[in-house]
């Protein structure tokens, strides 16, 4: 079985202490959630998968995507999309500019590129907002632009780093189903890290702790809420 995102004996350590030890496969269209409190190394896991682990951390093991070993590839060549807690839209580009930035360069011609951007905007319910300054969008709109931008680069896997925690409760459920629906429709393996039990339940897939043990969302969440 070579499809999907495969973590083979991946271990993330801070100094000598291992924080994360995982050996899992995320199948296409599956959502796996890693749950743990802050400082548990779950965000470091995602930066390791995109190839941008900061120096005090170290990583071991292999990462395969659709059978290809991407462990030693530079970030740009991995084809792994990520959504952070903040949307990190580029403030100097328009909404359409942010989306066009992600389009592959082999899609040529202004008309063709504009059409793909318009299509993405329509899919996100943002028709006619291409010329807008990202700053003028609501939080929910920005989150949708960030997702569409990630998907337009045609990734083979999607990582979610607590992407919903900045949204208010009302928008949160809608954006969540928006993201999961599009990821699943494209058959992307999705790996999400969160400390929010609600997010984990809504993902509907396996929920693991950073050591790979299965977790029942409600239990950890209550402990975590006390901590917060």
């Amino acid at each position: 079985m070579s499809e999907g995102l495969r973590l083979e004996g991946v271990e993330i350590a801070l100094g000598a202490a291992p924080l994360v030890t995982l050996d899992i496969t995320v199948a296409p269209g599956e959502v796996v959630t890693i749950m743990g409190p802050s400082g548990s190394g779950k965000s470091a896991l995602l930066t390791a998968i995109i190839g941008a682990l900061p120096p005090p951390f170290s990583a071991r093991g292999r990462i395969r995507l659709d059978g290809r070993d991407i462990t030693d590839l530079p970030t740009r060549a991995r084809r792994v999309g990520i959504l952070f807690q903040d949307d990190i839209l580029f403030p100097h580009l328009s909404v359409a500019g942010n989306l066009a930035f992600a389009l592959p360069s082999h899609l040529r011609g202004r008309a063709a590129r504009t059409a793909r951007v318009e299509e993405a905007l329509a899919d996100a319910g943002l028709e006619g907002m291409g010329a807008r300054d990202p700053e003028t969008l609501s939080g929910g709109q920005r989150a949708r632009v960030a997702l569409m931008r990630t998907l337009l680069a045609e990734p083979r896997a999607l990582l979610l780093d607590e992407p919903f925690s900045r949204l208010d409760a009302d928008r949160r459920a809608r954006i969540r189903s928006f993201v999961f629906a599009r990821a699943v429709a494209r058959g992307l393996p999705v790996l999400m890290v969160t400390h929010d039990a609600e997010d984990a339940r809504a993902a509907g897939g396996r929920v693991l702790d950073p050591r790979g043990a299965a977790v029942t969302p409600g239990v950890v969440a209550s402990a975590d809420d006390c901590r917060a």
Partner: peptide, 25 residues
């Protein structure tokens, strides 16, 4: 750093990513 990383996950080279999305800010 994070802005550059986002551009890199979209497939941009390191120098291009920095020049296109970090430099303008």
């Amino acid at each position: 750093l994070r802005t550059r990383e986002v551009a890199e996950t979209l497939g941009y080279g390191r120098i291009a990513a920095w020049m296109l999305v970090v430099l303008p800010r």
